[in-house]
Design a protein around this nucleic acid. Structure first.
Length: 955
RNA sequence: GGGCGAUUAACUCAGCGGUAGAGUGCUACCUUCACACGGUAGAAGUCAGAGGUUCGAAUCCUCUAUCGCCCACCA
């Protein structure tokens, strides 16, 4: 009559079903404003880019967030986890271009294909024009956004889909424009011609953060610039000789005696035959190169600054395609690389190349396409950072925003102190258009929320909107408040802002966190989030970064389909120690798949026995198993006991169900409930510190090695009795009730980590409640303060006897055979404890019988002394090899001796006694006493064994 | 040029002042009516090296070595 449940857990048979269910039931919408007075917990998902599908980094991030969200929800808080996606301006534009290229040239293969598609796609984009191209981008967004959404659903993210946002939603875009206009009105946004990082391949300016640096071997060329009078020359050193074509000065340090006299004189720029001045500027380092530097204001940020100070002309010799301009004279039209070769060749021919040295230089490359970035003079929009950064620094310094781990906080602050203005315009099409209009008649620029009808200056009606779009991070910087309806003062904004927590990877700390903090403080007068947790990176088994080119990418969906979402989540969580990157591997997931299987089978065992409950004789038992209405998140009374930094409630803070019929508890139940309390408390503490690995390990160990290995085994005979017997025996029915409670509690503790299997099993428990999901039930099972150290100690004593007996058995070579045991102790209460639990001890240790001796064992016995103060001895019909017996005792004695000596050494040390804390000294004293006692008894045992032929056994 | 992290059992990693831990792997035994994706027992570590602080150091400090990361407008 047992229910059919497969022995091997197959996650694929339940996970997709629950994933759908959670979304369709809209389970994770926070309850209505009217219904809640208690605390809330809000977090906005870092919006994935619509450029691709989710990778393991996302899965780690979503898993960590989901664990915390489910946990807070089960603590009775009103939780909002708001999802969404980012339009990812430049990334998306590039991908859509590549798609266009792929369509045009479908037959290409190999590593070159990507680059060719990109080039072709870019050409086709320009050909088709903005309107058609943006249509393609929107199509891409629809498709990919949907993929990402399905993936998140499959991974069990408990987000509120009804509040999903996209950074280019109309309402969101209005917020972006609002922010731009206000910043402009305040003079924080300005437009100007400055040196920017220009990617010639992407055809746009990029910010400092989007530029990567790479050390590459290069050269330092020493070039002679002859003075006008032809009598002398000055030698400059450069790594970029082609830029000399745009030089407008040579600079030396005014304090440098070698050159002081030359300041004010003019040299002739070689190849160009242009006279340029020698100037003095503090910036020049006399130690470097020759101490004289060529100045190219149009192509180097430092030179630009020097040029500003000395009012030098700016000669642009390299254009936006990285080709030489007309200003480059004979070199016009050459690429920058070809121009370099030609310039070096010509200088050499002219005898002006003094020497060439090998030199390791740091090259700036475009983060996205790896093209060498060209510092170019260009008209762009900038955001002044200083005023915004000041507030953002203060918020972190005074703790209004807590950054975890501490290390990230320092890095954030360092960066903030040295912040530069932010170039926010991009020469791209996909993104938020800059709300500025240029008057074609008078060149006036109008920044406005709406397209102006006419030019306010000349009344002209020919106005053209600025073609540029905003850096994608400008809009994502508004994420925590723009998603809640800002600038309207919406109900959501009032209820869920500031967010309680933000979680992201280190790689976007500056890109995103810093900008959110600055813009949040600026526009809401409040921090965007109270805490910022920086998670680790997921690497492959060899600790390599996962990347497509290396081919070591693990796809979350693939591995999820192979082992189950729960297993992958648990594997990630159990490796997620703050500040440490995760080496992720199949093996790790496999071992947690095994854990899921263990849970499944424990449940299978329990549920098979609960199938009995349909028997009319057991109706009272079934009734007792039905949970009392579990406290849902709407109904939890507010409570001020603290969890973590902000005093939210604790998981499992409710009293043990007191309104149910009292059930008798065995020692094992007391032990189990006490452990449950310990575990609950430990998990609360770990999760409050973002120690996911600790919390995961705690519940893993509890479930497997305490609940399954000991508790379940211990109560097995009680709960597997036939119904009629179960009905008669109160002890058995109490065991069943207690087991059901512990199991349900364990499911709750596991749920944030393994939402699918726990949801499934929870629904299979006999129950009357109408709760729709375990995740919506408060945790009303265990009080973490209900620990019971006395019961724990007693149970541990019994465990010690059982383990020791198994150990001796194994060493005696007795496997299926059942020896008998003798336990001797002076402590009658100890013997009483064992006698009272004789049945499970014999069963779990695999013993035939047991007898108890008060005092010492007879002289011919050589027992095993245990820490709890008793001597254990096993005997079996055939003789035990005395040599083996002695070996074991001697080994034990040696170990004890070593430990004892250490304790004695410590206690003999006068300064230890006087300086160490009292409890530590007392602890060591206690330990020494125990060790001495045990050593003594072991010595006696050895003495009884006598010489090597001594017989210590009896039939 | 600055800054940071890592080095602990064969492998992957926890622990970060008070008796060295886990998972995987390994050895022996067990197909006992939840689970062999299992059970029981076990072997396995000068906690990179050298100094120092401390009653006490894997844990704190200094240096060294090896590996890795981030930031940086030194031509």
């Amino acid at each position: 009559m047992q229910r059919e449940i497969p022995t091997v857990y197959s996650p694929e048979s339940i996970e997709p079903r629950w994933a759908r269910y959670w979304v369709e039931e809209k389970l994770y919408r926070p309850s209505d404003a009217a219904a809640t007075s208690g605390s809330r917990f809000s977090l906005s998902l870092p919006p994935p880019n619509i450029t691709g599908s989710l990778h393991m980094g996302h899965m780690l991030e979503h898993t960590e967030i989901d664990i915390l969200m489910r946990w807070h929800r089960m603590c009775g808080e009103n939780v909002l986890w708001l999802p969404g996606m980012d339009h990812a301006s430049i990334s998306t534009q590039m991908i859509v271009e590549r798609e266009l290229g792929r369509e045009a040239l479908p037959d290409l293969v190999g590593p070159q294909a990507r680059r060719t598609w990109q080039r072709e796609g870019q050409r086709r984009r320009l050909e088709m024009g903005p309107e058609k191209f943006l249509d393609r981008c929107w199509q891409w967004k629809e498709q990919n956004g949907d993929t990402i959404r399905r993936q998140m659903e499959r991974l069990g993210a408990s987000v509120d889909w009804t509040r999903a946002r996209f950074t280019m939603d109309p309402a969101y875009s209005r917020a972006v424009i609002e922010v731009f206009v206000r910043l402009h009105e305040e003079g924080l946004i300005y437009r100007g011609q400055y040196i920017v990082n220009w990617c010639p391949r992407c055809g746009t300016a990029v910010s400092d953060l989007e530029v990567a640096h790479e050390d590459r071997p290069g050269h330092l060329w020493y070039i002679r610039y002859p003075f006008e009078d032809g009598k002398d020359y000055i030698t400059v050193a450069t790594t970029r000789p082609e830029t000399m074509l745009g030089d407008t000065a040579v600079a030396v340090n005014p304090a440098d005696n070698r050159y002081r006299e030359m300041i004010g004189r003019k040299v002739v720029l070689p190849l160009m035959n242009r006279a340029i001045p020698v100037i003095g500027d503090e910036f020049v380092d006399p130690q470097f190169g020759t101490g004289a530097v060529k100045v190219t204001p149009a192509h180097d940020p430092n030179d630009f600054a020097i040029g500003m100070r000395h009012d030098l002309p700016r000669v642009t010799v390299i254009d936006f395609e990285a080709q030489m301009t007309r200003e480059a004279g004979p070199y016009a039209g050459l690429s920058r690389e070809k121009a370099r070769e030609a310039v070096v060749r010509d200088l050499s021919a002219a005898g002006l190349l003094e020497k060439t040295e090998d030199y390791k230089l740091s090259v700036s490359i475009c983060e996205r396409c790896k093209t060498i970035v060209e510092p170019l003079l260009s008209m762009q929009w900038f955001l002044k950072m200083q005023p915004l950064a000041t507030a953002a620094i203060r918020a972190v310094e005074d703790g209004r925003i807590r950054v975890v781990p501490e290390n990230s906080r320092k890095i954030y602050l360092d960066w903030m102190y040295r912040i530069h203005d932010w170039c926010i315009s991009r020469q791209l099409w996909w993104g938020h258009r800059i709300p500025a209009w240029h008057c074609e008649a008078c060149n006036e620029i109008v920044v406005s929320r709406e397209a102006p009808k006419s030019c306010p200056k000349c009344q002209g009606s020919a106005l053209r909107q600025d073609p540029d779009v905003l850096d994608t991070w400008f809009s994502s910087g508004l994420w925590p408040f723009a998603t809640l309806g800002w600038p309207e003062q919406t109900e959501d904004l009032k209820r869920f802002y500031p967010n309680d927590l933000m979680i992201m990877g280190f790689d976007i700390l500056f890109f995103w966190a810093a900008r959110m903090i600055m813009l949040g403080l600026k526009f809401t007068s409040d921090v965007p989030f109270r805490e910022l947790y920086i998670h680790a990176l997921v690497r492959d088994a060899e600790r390599q970064k996962m990347s497509k080119t290396k081919g070591n990418v693990i796809d979350p969906i693939e591995i999820t389909e192979k082992y189950g979402t729960d297993a992958v989540r648990f594997a990630l969580a159990s490796s997620a120690a703050p500040g440490t990157d995760i080496a992720f591997s199949d093996d790790k997931v496999q071992s947690h798949r095994n854990f899921a299987n263990k849970i499944w089978n424990a449940a299978r065992f329990i549920l098979m026995n609960f199938a009995n409950m349909t028997d009319p004789a057991l109706r009272h038992l079934a009734a007792a198993l039905k949970p009392v209405p579990i406290v849902g998140f709407d109904a939890v009374p507010s409570r001020d006991s603290g969890l973590g930094a902000r005093g939210s409630r604790e998981f499992g803070n409710e009293e043990l169900r007191t309104d149910e019929p009292r059930t008798e508890k065995l020692l094992v139940d007391h032990w189990m409930f006490s452990r449950l309390a310990d575990v609950t408390r430990d998990m609360n503490e770990s999760l409050a510190k973002y120690h996911f690995h600790e919390a995961a390990y705690t519940i893993y160990h509890f479930f497997w090695h305490e609940f399954c290995d000991w508790y379940l085994e211990w109560v097995k005979p009680e709960i597997t009795r036939p119904p009629e017997e179960l009905a008669r025996r109160t002890k058995a029915s109490a065991a069943a009730i207690n087991l059901a409670r512990v199991f349900e509690a364990a499911l709750h503790l596991l749920h944030p980590f393994m939402p699918f299997i726990t949801e499934e099993l929870w629904h299979q428990l006999p129950r009357a409640g109408d709760q729709r999901s375990i995740s919506l039930t408060g945790f009303a099972l265990v009080n973490p303060r209900a620990a019971d150290p006395v019961s724990e100690k007693q149970f541990e004593t019994i465990q010690e006897v059982i383990v020791a007996a198994r150990n001796i058995k194994a060493e005696m070579g007795l496997h299926k055979e059942k020896p008998s045991a003798q336990v001797a102790s002076e402590d009658t209460r100890l013997l009483e404890l064992f006698r009272a639990h004789q049945e499970p001890i014999l069963r779990l240790a695999g013993l035939e019988a047991m007898n108890f001796v008060r005092g010492r064992l007879p002289a011919d016995a050589s027992p095993m002394p245990l820490t709890s103060g008793c001597d254990l001895r096993l005997f079996y019909e055939r003789a035990i090899e005395p040599a083996a017996e002695r070996a074991r005792l001697e080994r034990e004695a040696a170990k004890l001796k070593q430990q004892l000596e250490q304790a004695e050494r410590q206690l003999a040390n006068e300064s230890f006694r006087s300086r160490a804390p009292h409890d530590v000294v007392a602890g060591v004293e206690r330990r020494r006493a125990e060790l001495a006692n045990q050593s003594q008894r072991i010595a006696e045992s050895l003495a009884r064994l006598g010489g090597s032929t001594g017989s210590a056994t009896q039939g």
